[in-house]
Simulated assay, not measured.
Amino acid sequence: MQRRAVTVYVALLLVVGAAAGGLVATADSPEVSFDDPEFEGGAGDSFEHGGQTYTVADVTETVEEGGHGAETVSLSATVEWEETVEESAEWANDSTVTYEENDWRVVIEGEDPNAVTLRKVLDRQAILENDSAADNETIDRDGEEFVVVTDEDDDATLVPADEYFPTPEERRIEEGETIVYDGHDATVTNVSASAALLEWEATQTMSSELTPQSQVTLGGTNFVAIFPDSETVVLSSDIDSFEAQQAEIDQFEQRMSGLTRVAWIIGATVLMLIAFAFLPSRY
């Protein structure tokens, strides 16, 4: 092959390769953006949708070290909101429950009750220990429980436990009554022979994590999230626009990938032509 011809071919290929490489190097990759998003802000900012207030709790940038000094940067955000949920508790008959910071035994009487009785659980051990005249333990005689009480003359007397210990406090709660239970206004909605049912409403903090191009449903509406920078998140319900822009980005990346392959092929072809040009001729 004549070196002059090779020079011409190489020059033409270099022009084409340079054009392809220049386009790859200078082309700006399109990015998803919205003209009128429902929300754009950072950590601590809020927005309303469907009568509900949503707050961006945080926007986080995470940098992970890779091989050969490479770094992978990922962005995420957390959006939070308050929801009212229904909660309940069941007081089983003859069980022990905590109410007003005390332990109570649940007493339900009758086959068709309309109320529940709470009988305070006495700390009998503490009562005995606080009485210097009484033994710290009760005793059983003929199937009956007694407290041993010693008088000033060191004479011991057996006092029936039912007489010694005070009558426990009782609280009667009617079906349909509202009480303060576990910090909530709870209503006794049903009382049966086996248990009493309490129901109340509570506020619960809900959350959802956002990542670039992820979708989240808030108040029945689908939103897509984008991150213009490491401190800002944008939410838009224009899913059609997002998908159209994403299709354009995919098409752009395919074109850039094709141009990159063209540049590499041209570079390899140029090297081959130069190598062939310097091969010794047999003639």
Rank of each mutant, 00 (worst) to 15 (best):
A5C: 12
V6A: 14
V6R: 10
V10T: 14
A19F: 07
A19V: 11
A19E: 08
A20D: 09
D28W: 01
D36G: 01
P37H: 04
E38C: 06
F39G: 00
S46M: 03
E48D: 08
E48K: 07
G51E: 00
T53H: 04
T55E: 14
E61W: 06
E61M: 13
G67K: 13
H68L: 04
G69Y: 03
T72E: 05
V79K: 05
V79F: 10
E82W: 04
E86D: 15
S88D: 06
N93D: 14
V97K: 08
V106H: 01
V106S: 00
G110H: 08
N114Y: 06
V116D: 01
R119C: 00
R119Y: 01
L122I: 06
S132R: 14
S132N: 12
T138L: 01
D140M: 14
D140K: 09
D142N: 13
G143R: 07
V147S: 06
D153R: 07
D154H: 12
T157P: 06
T157F: 15
L158G: 10
V159D: 04
Y164E: 06
E170D: 13
H184L: 04
D185G: 07
T187E: 11
A195M: 12
E199A: 15
A202H: 05
M206F: 05
Q213N: 15
Q215T: 13
F223N: 11
F227H: 06
P228L: 05
E231G: 05
T232P: 04
L235P: 00
S237Q: 14
D238I: 04
D238E: 10
I239M: 05
D240R: 06
Q245P: 02
E248D: 11
E248T: 10
I249F: 01
I249S: 00
E253S: 13
M256F: 08
S257P: 09
G258R: 12
G258W: 12
L259S: 02
I265C: 06
A268H: 00
L271C: 06
L271V: 15
L273E: 01
A275F: 11
P280I: 10
P280A: 08
